[in-house]
Design a protein around this nucleic acid. Sequence first.
DNA 1: GTCTATACACAGATAGAC
DNA 2: GTCTATCTGTGTATAGAC
Lengths: 227, 227
Amino acid sequence: MNYSEFQKVITTHQKNNAQEAITENRKEIRVKKEKTVAKNLQRIFEATLKIGNKKGFQAMSMRDLSNETELSMGALYAYFKNKENLLVMLQRNGRDNFQKILEDCAGSSEHPLETFRQLIKTHLFMSEALRPWFFFTYMEGKNLNKKERKVAVEHELHSDNIIVAILNKCEEENIFKKQNHHVTAAMIKSLMNDWYLKRWKYAKMNVSVDDYASYVIDLIESYCCKK
Amino acid sequence: MNYSEFQKVITTHQKNNAQEAITENRKEIRVKKEKTVAKNLQRIFEATLKIGNKKGFQAMSMRDLSNETELSMGALYAYFKNKENLLVMLQRNGRDNFQKILEDCAGSSEHPLETFRQLIKTHLFMSEALRPWFFFTYMEGKNLNKKERKVAVEHELHSDNIIVAILNKCEEENIFKKQNHHVTAAMIKSLMNDWYLKRWKYAKMNVSVDDYASYVIDLIESYCCKK
DNA sequence: GTCTATACACAGATAGAC
DNA sequence: GTCTATCTGTGTATAGAC
């Protein structure tokens, strides 16, 4: 699978996800009409990502958000009860989405080396398709309250463990060497994150997401593979 | 060299650097007495890093800073002309320091593979010794104005090029394969950054900075070395 | 050099009209 | 559902006493 094939798959997931964002936060949202909520919540999310990634979430004022969404201050507050709640909704929603797709992917193939490669690609392709969300979530993690920060850390460790599991599988089947797979998984994660954190650099080097996936796979396999 | 040896070297550099911070920003600082400036500027920098890394620089109020430094608001403004100026001073100062040490290191050994390893270690050890500054600078980069952001990018590319240069040297001397060293350097950078961005994770795994250096060196060498 | 007191702008949030 | 108008708290920054 390459990125352009992935893009077709992701679109369906996206729509489910948008719907879930609503049901999950139904009690916070005062607006009743489903269609209006769907439309405006997406506008709000997109605008928050846009402004937040430019100047930071704290520095984004509700007036900024009001201008960008073309909704009044009053209207905005019908969709979330306060600014912090908006942050939580936005982060939580994307995370569930991401985790689900990653888990699907981890159980996708019989051949562990193939699964490993698929996992790297899916991870990168997700962050390519949803770059603003990934960037935002990475940067704004520390603005969450204690409870939500704990949830974020658990998600991070969970997705690390998905990687560790497949590395172990590859070791069991004698494809990979015995190594500290937790460290390897952390290093892989770091390389995954770099794709959305420093994308300007890869753009400058004319490296596409498909190219980058190959580089990472080569790098990790030459470290892990037996001989 | 391991980290505890490095720590002895770094202390001298630190003092020079503190002095430079003053001379470089002399015109912004209203306070005359050199000794007072040295003492208070350091307090201000440390407090800014502490609060800024917890809640973000934008979210840090001058009242927060005043409490942490035990200097009044009025006193603070004798050391910088506004909040933005404080950010610039702090970032610029550390960057010059970092670059100088990295350049020294890159020309340190005759043997390119040894220089490569030294460079990885120095990079990691620096970020270990000055973790608050590295974390802060990474996270707050987007809050800089256009001009300062450009400077930051140039520094980043410059330090990438230091890595590329040594990778090329290793290739010339037939130690490393012919590869896209710019991408390799970017991936190395990502792994370097992870050490200070996700240190809680490595702490959890009981991985010391010396351990981590070995992991990274092994990883990159198995990717780059011939056969 | 450092303090206290305060100016003034702008933030988040809500009330009540439409 | 969405608007405008407005409340109240907090932000940065400075003036002037010590």
